[in-house]
Write a protein that binds this DNA or RNA. Structure first.
Lengths: 245, 245
DNA sequence: TGACCCTAATAAGTACGACATATTGCGGAG
DNA sequence: CTCCGCAATATGTCGTACTTATTAGGGTCA
């Protein structure tokens, strides 16, 4: 699982970043409310003010909070959060994202990934395309084994963004990975991977390998549409649990 | 200029974040190389280690550097940088992005903005659409005044992303704004705004206001294509200056 | 009574000094 | 020549003291 997130990480301040970050993203600390004072956080976490301050600076760098003199440190509105930041996305995961955010993620995928497929078909680096082919082959070998299938699936979709040759598309690997992970968890409730999963992905790869830009785009759009169709009935019931492990 | 960046900001540590961030992004501190030791940075900036450490944590949170015990703090490969982070983008601006990165930005715009136009046409909040209309009207009034035109232009494109109703599309306001700002600077070399600028933007707005999704998408794609066509001759000569203000 | 200014309290910002800990490279023993 | 262990190094953590911006509240004057 080649992740790019940095928090949670070893070290005291990293733990604090994760704890507070999770509490904010999960809504436990409400948007617009004030964090406890630094000294109070020191007592709560049993750490020095140095560690607390470093954690606050990290969270502020990701747009979650805004420290100000005398007023204290306030949680910024969600629109100000760096939602595409790998860490911020990761902190969403335990709560399952929620139907609205998942829908946004799917729309982003439906927009980006077909374009990425087209670019990869047009100018994709052969080495990258080989990795895509390997991922497809692993999907075939995985059969109905969910773990192997999902792993190969992620490798394919992320690899596609890298193969697009666009550094900004590559940045969207985190949200795509997050969306896939969340989708897997939902799909498991209705019984494992789709039977046609391998076939529709292979169609994308073959179009890219054949340098057929239009077909690559269309095939990829179909993959996303299939995922959206499958998820639609599952994601409508909004989950209420905030205590989920 | 409604910005969402946080650095440069008041305060000592904010200055350090900006200085080092700029040096890394501009290449003055090479990728893969080590930053000076914290104590040495203290002397150089004339600050305490506290401020230096907070700055390092902020830059690490944005993926630029990776501190490690005993080894020191190393500049991470560019692929690890959070290129969509508003601050990281802003730190690119003084160097003019460079042709490759600008091309990536344009591809991102060409992918995202037509989709955003379609979504805005489908379900855009009337209040947001009104803002779009106001921006269009300002573009008309601006005539050939570059400053007014560019301001309205940015308001239109950013407003469109907000009107899409997708929180992740909204996150891409920063890169879009960055791309527009960079484009303006290049276009000025070949003589101000395009004459048909207002007309092609107005076409997008009218399609959205008429809730015509297909026309909105097509009109927006045309706007981006026009911008790309106009920039193509200007952005090929790679700028050499790193000393820019 | 109401508006205004000044003061004091507050919480983040900065600074300095010390120690802890992980990691790497070097040198000696086998 | 290999391997083990020690020492050097740079970040990580801690504690305390002081500074500064900001705001709330009280007191004064019109």
């Amino acid at each position: 699982m080649p992740d790019d997130r940095a928090y949670p990480s070893g070290g005291v301040h990293g733990q604090v970043v994760y704890q507070i970050g999770r509490q904010i993203v999960s809504g436990e600390i409400a948007v617009g409310s004030d964090l406890p004072r630094e000294v109070e956080l020191c007592e709560r976490f049993g750490t020095s003010r140095q560690a607390i301050r470093e954690a606050i600076k990290v969270l502020a760098a990701k747009g979650l909070i805004e420290p100000r003199r005398r007023r204290g440190t306030r949680v910024r509105p969600r629109a100000a959060w760096n939602l595409l930041d790998p860490d911020v996305l990761l902190w969403h995961a335990p709560d399952g994202f929620g139907p609205d955010f998942l829908a946004d993620l799917l729309e982003l995928r439906a927009t980006i990934e077909p374009a990425a497929a087209e670019l990869a078909a047009r100018r994709g680096d052969p080495a990258r395309l080989a990795e895509l082919g390997a991922a497809i082959e692993d999907m075939r070998l995985a059969g109905l084994d969910p773990v192997r299938f999902y792993d190969a699936d992620i490798r394919f979709h992320v690899g596609l963004l890298l193969a697009s040759g666009n550094s900004l598309f590559a940045q969207l690997a985190s949200p795509v990975r997050a969306a896939l992970t969340a989708s897997f968890r939902l799909q498991e409730r209705i019984g494992g991977p789709q039977e046609n999963g391998y076939a529709i992905h292979a169609a994308v790869y073959e179009a890219i390998a054949a340098r057929d830009t239009a077909r690559a785009r269309a095939a990829m759009a179909f993959v996303i549409e299939a995922a959206a169709t499958e998820l639609r009935p599952v994601m409508t019931p909004a989950p209420e649990s905030t205590t989920g492990a």
